[in-house]
Simulated assay, not measured.
Amino acid sequence: MAYEIDGKVIEHDEEGYLTDIAQWSEPLGGVIATKEGLAMTPEHWEVVNFLREYYAEYQIAPAIRVLTKALTKRMGAEKASNKYLYDLFPYGPAKQACKIAGLPKPTGCV
C-alpha cells in the first residue's frame, strides 16, 4: 500500500499511516488529506504543523487529551476545543491529523 506523489511511491500501513515518517512533505500531506476527504485550509495546516513540532520535540504523537492541552497553551482554548478540532478533522483530531502530518498513530487511539 502506498501513496504516489510526483512519480514517487511512498509506503503506508493498512490504515494509511506512513511507514517512514521521514518521507513526509506538505504536498504528501495534501494527498493524504484528499484521500481522507478533507480540503486543507490554513486552520488544518496549523494543527498539522503543531503536531509535527510536538512530535519532533517529544518523539510521540499525542492522544486527543494531550493534544488539546498542548494546543490550549499555544493557540488558546477556542482553537483547542474538541468541537473546533472535530470540525476540522471529523474522523478524530489526533488520529486523522497525525495521519495527514505523516506521524504514527497516536497512543491510545483505536
Rank of each mutant, 00 (worst) to 15 (best):
K35P: 03
G76Y: 01
P62M: 10
A39I: 12
L38K: 13
Q96F: 04
L18I: 01
E57G: 05
F89I: 09
C109T: 14
C98H: 07
P104A: 09
Y91M: 15
T107V: 14
A56N: 08
K83W: 09
V110H: 14
G30V: 02
C109P: 05
P106Y: 08
A33Q: 11
V48A: 07
R52D: 06
Q23Y: 00
N82K: 13
V47C: 04
D20A: 05
C109S: 14
A22K: 14
Y86H: 12
V66N: 04
G108E: 13
A33G: 12
A97V: 08
I60M: 15
G30E: 15
L88N: 03
I10E: 07
V48C: 04
L51S: 08
S81F: 00
V9S: 12
K99W: 05
A97T: 08
V110R: 14
K8S: 11
I32A: 09
G102S: 04
G37Q: 10
M1I: 12
Q59H: 08
K8I: 07
L67Q: 04
R74E: 14
T41D: 06
K83G: 07
G7M: 00
T72Y: 02
E11F: 00
L88T: 09
Y54H: 12
S25R: 03
T68R: 15
D6L: 00
P27I: 05
A97S: 15
A77P: 01
K79N: 09
N82P: 08
T41M: 05
P27V: 00
K99G: 07
L51W: 10
V31L: 14
Y17E: 13
M40E: 10
N82A: 11
T41E: 10
T41L: 08
F50D: 00
S81T: 04
K105T: 02
T68K: 15
Y3R: 01
R52F: 02
P27G: 00
T34N: 14
S81W: 03
Y55P: 00
G7V: 01
A63R: 09
G16D: 13
Y54D: 09
M75W: 05
F89A: 09
E26F: 10
H12E: 09
I100P: 11
V48K: 09
I5R: 07
A101H: 10
E26V: 07
A94D: 14
T107N: 13
K73A: 13
L67E: 02
P90Y: 02
